[in-house]
Amino acid sequence: MSDMPIVSPFVPWVPTPNRKRRHVLDLDDFSAAEIIDVLDAATSMKEVLGRSVPQVPILRGRTVVNVFYEESTRTRMSFELAARTLSAATMSMTAKGSSVEKGESLIDTIRTIQALGADIIVIRHGESGAPYLAAQHFKGSIINAGDGRHAHPSQALLDLFTIRERLGELKGLNVTIVGDILHSRVARSNIWGMLRCGMNVTLCAPSTLIGDVRMWQETFPTLKISYDLDAIIPDTDVLMGLRLQKERMQAGLLPALREYSTYFGINQTRIDNLPDHAIVMHPGPMNEGVEIMPEAADSPRSVIEAQVTNGVAVRMALLYRLSGEATA
């Protein structure tokens, strides 16, 4: 199943075979081999980041524009740092304070940025599919930095990188993704990437936050779903918590945060029941005390800070990968 070319329902353009990659919109069109290529390149990029002068000239003369319609700290700064480390020029646009407030459409904004000479646009948008629309109207490359509930491919790649760095081989590892699956683009991109890499993925959440179980089973026949975190903890190599997305959650999905925390929160007891080698991940930002307890986030099992650091290296690898020929 994992070798079948499955195309996102949003995809409006057909990737040409044997051509180098032009956009990074989700991991659904990445093969296992391409994922491993990106992770290998990111390993070399991490060496650059560790130098006393962390800058290499390869993308001199290229322009990377961050276009953020949704707030973000780590993703935006991470892409900026990645671009600057490769010597690209960077510009940033947030919806607030831009012409978007005067009613400029996404397409017009993308065309404006193109006219200013952008080679790569890194876009975050609240609407699922927005980066695909942008890709149709931009001559350069688009990187999806999170679109609605749909996808967040660079996050999934940095998660895979961090897992491989800590646990070695990806194939055969048991991953448990626990939390607000329904609203999570991080979970969706990770599911694509992890299954492609031969990992076993279990989703764990209250039934109101899992989404459409039949849809999951039809799309990913090997995906497992559980409502009992304690039962699967002893077989978990990678425990990934997701933020309980309060700003998107309609009232009524949960009776109480405290109850959620009791059944699905990552706490010290659950950490103690993990196998000795297991790691705990979280894409951030965290609601400490809700989906993850402070003692869990700070425990030796936690790789949450490594995820942030590794994010820069992975994004460098993506920017380099998209920088074949000049677009202008």
Binding site: K20, D37, D40, A41, T43, S44, M45, E47, V48, V56, P57, I58, L59, L86, A317, Y320, R321, L322, S323, G324, E325, A326
Partner: peptide, 23 residues
């Protein structure tokens, strides 16, 4: 030493070269 990130022919040859580890 890997010199991929210091090449001056990115425009000509593209990003096809896999980056190797400098150590």
């Amino acid at each position: 030493l890997d010199i991929t990130l210091y090449r001056d022919d990115l425009e000509i040859r593209g990003a096809s070269t896999q980056i190797q580890h400098t150590n």
